[in-house]
């Protein structure tokens, strides 16, 4: 077999858009950073929302830093495999972790985690806060969020709440919904958002909460019914949906926030360079436009900083730990 590979492989090599990976380089001078390719580790599959956001910002960041950025998908166990991998890397700035809200829920979901989100990482800055939407099958009875709250209160035994699996943003949002309304519903877990939405469109389950990145198309086409967005501000792509606060459920405020991390022993000088590149990327018009298509926006410059990011991480760990423990959900 190998011998016959020559022709196609040559064309592959010609086409390859990324340059050769070099290895190691632990004792590099921080002032000279970056001298080689940088890897962004994404804890979820290629093509998913987190991967998409990463690839969007990687391009302008790469231009700003003057080096290639390679996106690597390391899936598994709610993103803890990827985070564990980056935590164990040299703090040289060449391995950067992109992670979302799951960074703050991992300690509660996985009690014997081998790393600490706060102690084993330095934060670079927040990237975006993807709004979530509360959606239902199109023939579900309640017409507004208020109706929905009353309806699930009266029919807690029969209503089904779908989610995309353990630790998924949709599950967290669902838990927060149950807590805000004060009901205990029957949850129907799926292996990912795609299958969950399929059954929602098909009318097999009643409602769920998921990111705009996944639901905007189906809401606009009328295949599913949207009740509200879970952010303080309305979402441009979905002008008809009120915010949860306006619709009478202010406790339900949640977004899938994303941020960049490096190992804790990374010099501050490198962190500053990465933060500066991130801030430039977030003002890139192409990034803004494409994020708008996804139903989200880049964070402001104040938030794309290590301080704001660390504060967000601490606040979120405090928020989710008791909710997850109360719900008895555990990854261990």
């Amino acid at each position: 077999m190998p011998r016959r590979m020559r022709t196609p492989v040559t064309s592959l090599a010609v086409l390859a858009v990324l340059s050769l990976a070099a290895c190691g380089g632990g004792d590099a001078d921080p002032a000279a950073f970056p001298e080689e390719d940088i890897t962004f580790v994404v804890p979820f599959s290629a093509g998913g929302p987190t991967d998409t956001v990463t690839r969007l910002i990687a391009e302008p960041m790469s231009e700003e830093l003057g080096q290639q950025i390679i996106v690597q998908n390391v899936e598994g166990a709610g993103g803890t495999v990827a985070a564990g991998q980056v935590a164990g890397e040299d703090g040289d700035g060449y391995q950067v972790l992109m992670h979302h809200i799951g960074m703050s829920t991992a300690p509660a979901l996985y009690p014997d985690l081998e790393y600490s989100p706060l102690e084993d990482f330095k934060t670079i800055g927040l990237v975006t806060d993807v709004p979530m939407t509360i959606v239902a099958r199109d023939d579900f009875e309640p017409e507004t969020l208020e109706d929905l709250v009353t309806y699930v209160g009266d029919n807690a035994d029969t209503v089904t709440l779908a989610n995309a699996g353990i630790g998924a943003a949709s599950q967290l949002c669902g838990l927060l919904f149950e807590e805000a309304v004060g009901v205990d519903l029957t949850e129907v877990p799926y292996d990912g958002t795609g299958p969950a939405l399929t059954d929602l469109v098909g009318g097999q389950v009643d409602f769920m909460c998921d990111q705009t990145t996944n639901t905007t198309g189906q809401i606009l086409s009328g295949d599913i019914k949207g009740y509200a967005v879970t952010t303080p501000e309305p979402v441009e792509a979905l002008p008809d949906l009120p915010t949860t606060a306006d619709a009478g459920l202010p406790e339900l405020e949640v977004g899938v926030w994303h941020g960049l991390y490096v190992p804790a022993d990374t010099p501050d000088e490198i962190v500053e360079k990465l933060t500066a590149a991130l801030q430039v990327a977030l003002t890139d018009q192409n990034v803004i436009d494409q994020m708008a298509d996804l139903g989200t926006t880049p964070v402001t410059e104040d938030e794309a900083t290590p301080d704001a990011h660390t504060a967000k991480l601490e606040e979120q760990i405090d928020l989710w730990t008791p909710i997850i423990e109360d719900a008895g959900v555990s990854g261990e």
């Binding site: 998409t52 969007l56 905007t216 189906q218 606009l220 494409q290 298509d293």
Partner: peptide
């Protein structure tokens, strides 16, 4: 699709 700025969906 999304990277290319197209929202896949019924439309």
């Amino acid at each position: 699709f999304i990277i290319q700025g197209i929202q896949p969906g019924p439309d």
